[in-house]
């Protein structure tokens, strides 16, 4: 497509607590290049216009999950969002919703980092086997059961899109539950009962009302909303089983 524009306007959220207690928007006019992503425009601002602009990025190829921001109101990876698709602008860039802002476009992800280990996102074995026992082989079907959930890059777009997380900060959240399911559904794992303590509580899966935005915005097609609904079935079955066997724990 032929574009007549030479430049594009960025309206960038700025928060510099050491100099200005209130956040503000700063406008930058950057050159438009057809193959530029929003991240390229931000890098241009930082390299050529204002080196104090703060934001996270690393791989530039949708793998590291660092460069998630709110662009024109939508949570996206800025390295995977073409400026061409947002013309004629201006393009508004905010930090991800739901996280306290440390500076400019950098959010404090400490809440997620504290929640993630609570769902024990690692393989738990009943008994560790010696190394010379060899690999634990899986069939393609067994890998397929969890593979989708292993694609999560912890980019936090799902948390930013989730209206429940914004209102109910104790909600353990979409990515953490999807990652718990990544291990629950792994045939090598025996830790589902240990994860249930966290997942089946109110602030586990039950806070979710299946808005579904987490799956809509996920850049890796992980479908956290599906993971949560599947776990609700698991937790409900467990609850009914516990009624039949009241003495059972775990």
């Amino acid at each position: 497509m032929e574009n007549a524009v030479d430049t594009v306007t960025l309206k960038v959220f700025r928060y510099r607590p050491e100099t200005a207690p209130e956040p503000e928007y700063e406008t930058f006019e950057v050159p438009y290049q057809e193959d530029w992503m929003v991240l390229d425009a931000l890098n241009h601002v930082k390299d050529e216009m204002d080196g104090s602009l703060s934001y996270r990025w690393s791989c530039r190829m949708g793998v590291c999950g660092s460069c998630g921001m709110t662009v024109n109101g939508e949570p996206v990876l800025t390295c995977a969002t073409y400026i061409e698709d947002l013309l004629p602008g201006p393009i508004r860039i905010d930090p991800l919703r739901g996280f306290p802002v440390i500076r400019d476009l950098v959010g404090d992800l400490g809440d997620f980092m504290a929640k993630l280990p609570r769902v024990k996102p690692w393989i738990i074995r009943k008994e560790e086997e010696p190394l010379d026992a060899g690999e634990t082989l899986q069939t393609p079907e067994e890998v397929g059961a969890f593979r989708q959930y292993s694609m999560c890059i912890n980019c936090m777009l799902c948390y930013a899109a989730c209206p429940i997380y914004e209102m109910e900060p104790d909600f353990i959240g979409p990515a953490a539950i999807a990652l718990a399911q990544r291990y629950n559904l792994d045939s090598r794992d025996h830790g589902a009962d240990e994860r249930m303590d966290v997942l089946s509580r109110k602030h586990g899966v039950w806070d979710c009302t299946f808005v579904g935005e987490c799956s809509v915005v996920c850049p890796k097609d992980v479908d956290p909303a599906g993971a949560i609904q599947r776990y609700k079935v698991t937790a409900t079955m467990d609850w009914f089983r516990s009624l039949l066997r009241p003495g059972r724990s775990g």
Partner: peptide, 17 residues
Amino acid sequence: MALKPPREPLVWALFSA
């Protein structure tokens, strides 16, 4: 498990069904 919410699985099961 004492920490489980007692009613949510029941009402969700009815909702879901």
